[in-house]
Computed example of a mutant assay.
Amino acid sequence: MTRRDVPGIPVLLGLLAGIVALTVLSAWSARDTAVPLGIDLLVGAVAVAVLPLLSRRPLLGGVLLGVLAALSPAATPAATAGTYVVARREGLAVAVPVACASAVGHAVQALWRPVGLPLGWWLLADVAVHAALLGWGAYGRTRDTLVDEWRARARAAERDQVRTVEEARSAERTRIAREMHDTLAHRLTLLATTAGALEYRTDLSPEQVAAAAGVVRASAGEALEELRTVIGVLREGPEELRPAPGLADLAALVAREREAGATVTLTVPDVDLPPALGLAVYRTCQEGLTNARRHAPGAVVDVRVAVEDGLRVRVVDVGGAAGSGPGTGSGLIGLTERIELLGGTVTAVPRPDGFALEAWIPWEP
């Protein structure tokens, strides 16, 4: 703990040396000649020399100062200052015995050396002064402890704030990355598949080429719109973003797949879903179709949404040729995070003749 308002030892020693000299001269001017001046000066010097001991052995130093105060008024400045210093630096378990030692020492001094007040008043003043010094030092120590605690709390709050901001940034980056995968990856995969068909299918009729080119153009435009939507997440105007897709948009999603040459069947219930739930269903179907097109081109894909003790979404592909190989898995990770936030589960398992992606979300119509 930082010690504040406690004078440095050199400054304290210099001040006390001056006070001791004034005390001794005052005693001699009052014709207190029972003790030689040299003895008083020696006791005062020893008392000042004992002060540094308070920082290492405060209880021993306080008792020695009390003994010296009983011998000569020259030790009074050092003994009273020692009471305050120990109370300022140490707990009451140490400060109270030191204050008592100094008070008793001064009381003993008053019994055999002349004082400027009646004995009763002197003892009362002695106790009052040491109690005030003890309270003053304890108050300062308590204040220092509180200030140190407040500063530690402020630093901890700053660290927590920095960590909270970093976590929010990381969560936002993850959300944006998930949105980009769920939207752009689907469009771009469709573009790549259709462009590949145009490149290798030289036997296509002009009508088929035109239809495929139309799919490429439409997919490119939709990919651009999706990119604008994702970029809009970073802007301050979320009200400018278009509505998130939902259950009603699955028909258009499947239609685009069919235009690209895929064989897809769709079964959806006639229900109204909350926006967040509808978006989760849409992203699940989109992820399943993207994976089927990428890893099993030409497969027959069945997309089925049903209300079965909740909401269940299944995307199953059967047959198909070998695709572009294993992906990064980030799409399934992002989809799993999205579904788990709604309290649901995601399973993705290979089948003997294909692959099945299934999501379950708790929901009551």
Score class of each variant (00 low, 15 high):
residue 104 V to W: 02
residue 147 V to G: 10
residue 72 S to D: 00
residue 117 L to F: 06
residue 64 L to F: 02
residue 137 G to A: 09
residue 138 A to Y: 04
residue 115 V to P: 03
residue 124 L to D: 11
residue 107 A to M: 04
residue 47 A to C: 05
residue 147 V to L: 14
residue 44 G to A: 08
residue 120 G to C: 02
residue 59 L to W: 08
residue 144 D to S: 13
residue 37 L to T: 12
residue 125 A to D: 11
residue 93 A to Q: 11
residue 105 G to E: 00
residue 96 V to T: 09
residue 100 C to P: 04
residue 49 A to C: 07
residue 96 V to Q: 08
residue 133 L to Y: 04
residue 145 T to H: 12
residue 137 G to Q: 07
residue 136 W to E: 14
residue 91 G to H: 07
residue 141 R to G: 07
residue 66 G to N: 04
residue 88 R to N: 09
residue 95 A to N: 09
residue 146 L to K: 15
residue 84 Y to S: 08
residue 41 L to S: 15
residue 99 A to S: 08
residue 99 A to R: 01
residue 141 R to I: 12
residue 61 G to C: 05
residue 100 C to H: 03
residue 92 L to T: 10
residue 58 P to R: 11
residue 119 L to Q: 08
residue 109 Q to A: 07
residue 100 C to M: 10
residue 85 V to P: 03
residue 69 A to Y: 00
residue 107 A to R: 00
residue 137 G to M: 09
residue 45 A to W: 01
residue 143 R to F: 05
residue 73 P to M: 09
residue 122 W to T: 14
residue 98 V to G: 09
residue 69 A to H: 00
residue 89 R to L: 04
residue 102 S to G: 12
residue 140 G to K: 09
residue 123 L to S: 13
residue 108 V to K: 00
residue 80 T to C: 12
residue 34 A to W: 03
residue 129 V to D: 03
residue 76 T to K: 06
residue 73 P to K: 05
residue 73 P to W: 02
residue 132 A to Y: 11
residue 147 V to W: 08
residue 123 L to Q: 06
residue 106 H to I: 03
residue 57 R to M: 13
residue 114 P to I: 03
residue 142 T to Q: 14
residue 81 A to F: 02
residue 97 P to C: 10
residue 134 L to A: 12
residue 106 H to V: 03
residue 58 P to A: 10
residue 101 A to Y: 00
residue 41 L to G: 15
residue 33 T to V: 13
residue 137 G to V: 03
residue 90 E to F: 05
residue 101 A to F: 01
residue 48 V to N: 14
residue 80 T to V: 11
residue 96 V to K: 08
residue 54 L to H: 04
residue 125 A to F: 10
residue 45 A to I: 04
residue 132 A to S: 13
residue 78 A to W: 00
residue 133 L to D: 02
residue 116 G to D: 11
residue 144 D to L: 11
residue 71 L to T: 06
residue 51 L to I: 14
residue 97 P to T: 07
residue 87 A to V: 08
residue 57 R to F: 05
residue 135 G to S: 12
residue 118 P to N: 10
residue 147 V to N: 11
residue 41 L to W: 09
residue 96 V to F: 13
residue 110 A to W: 01
residue 115 V to F: 02
residue 53 L to Q: 10
residue 101 A to N: 02
residue 39 I to W: 09
residue 53 L to H: 08
residue 123 L to N: 06
residue 140 G to D: 14
residue 52 P to L: 06
residue 35 V to A: 14
residue 128 A to L: 11
residue 64 L to M: 09
residue 47 A to I: 00
residue 115 V to S: 06
